[in-house]
Write a protein that binds this DNA or RNA. Structure first.
Lengths: 139, 139
DNA sequence: CTTTGTGCAAATTCTTTGCACCAAA
DNA sequence: TTTGGTGCAAAGAATTTGCACAAAG
């Protein structure tokens, strides 16, 4: 089975009807774990799909987020960023280069949903920011 | 000493030159721990300060954030929200009513900056979202 | 005076909406 | 067919910028 069909199946797990565009966006997110913005996804897919519109990227990502297939990160106030890795992990954003890094190795306790009286928690987001090692070494 | 002068002193601690507008914004934030948006701050102050402009609110809050006097929350993707409480605490946003609650009672361990090789962390943001008890009880 | 802050209007950026056309079942 | 998806253009909302005037030291 080729990659395209694998992604079809993957989308169906989340109750998302596959289309050429949706499959391309998910394929991109699974292959590029860089927490891309809408703009970056569009710029990357557009050359191979000349009729692709930014509206479709918006529609597609909103659908993915609604269905729980993708996380929309709030870490970057300027632009929404998307992450197809929905397992428990935190993020670090460099205030100098803007890159967003995954942090998988943190204590899993961090992601436990605290018991809050009467509140139903359905998502947890843990974000750090500062200066990454690459940027620090430039000085 | 009146409240106005207290806030003057408070601003100076952060190396912020006080002005009537800046003092009013900080006074508002200290008195309304509701994580207001720019719009809400403007709407609230504008009647008593008819010449106040939204640009000044933007300028002021950007300055406060740069100086570390106020936190800009990313929890609400739609609008920036501001918090004059800079002590360690998390937030919960209700997806139904949009209200942002403070969570002070969580384990302080959550706010420790993890040791990441070569990364300098200067801020930590922990955000939960779901349904708050008021909204839950409406059903 | 001189520097800094304010506020209007315009510009920019990001995202959503309305609607006609297209594609798949 | 009929339903749902796509994509263009326009609208809307949030934020930033340019610039002239005002305020404070």
């Amino acid at each position: 089975m080729n990659n395209y069909m694998q992604i079809h199946k993957y989308l169906k797990q989340f109750d998302i009807k596959p289309s050429v565009q949706r499959t391309a966006v998910m394929e991109y997110l699974l292959a590029h774990k860089t927490h891309p913005t809408i703009e970056e996804i569009y710029a990357s897919l557009s050359p191979q799909m000349p009729t692709l519109s930014k509206t479709t990227i918006y529609n597609t990502l909103n659908l993915f987020v609604d269905k729980g297939a993708v996380l929309q990160l709030a870490i970057d106030e300027k632009n929404a960023r998307y992450d197809a890795d929905i397992s428990d992990h935190a993020h670090f954003m460099c205030n100098s280069c803007g890159k967003v890094y995954d942090l998988f190795s943190l204590n899993k306790e961090l992601f436990k949903k605290p018991a809050l009286e009467g509140f139903d928690i359905n998502s947890v987001e843990i974000s750090y920011s500062g200066i990454c090692s690459s940027c620090k070494n430039l000085n």
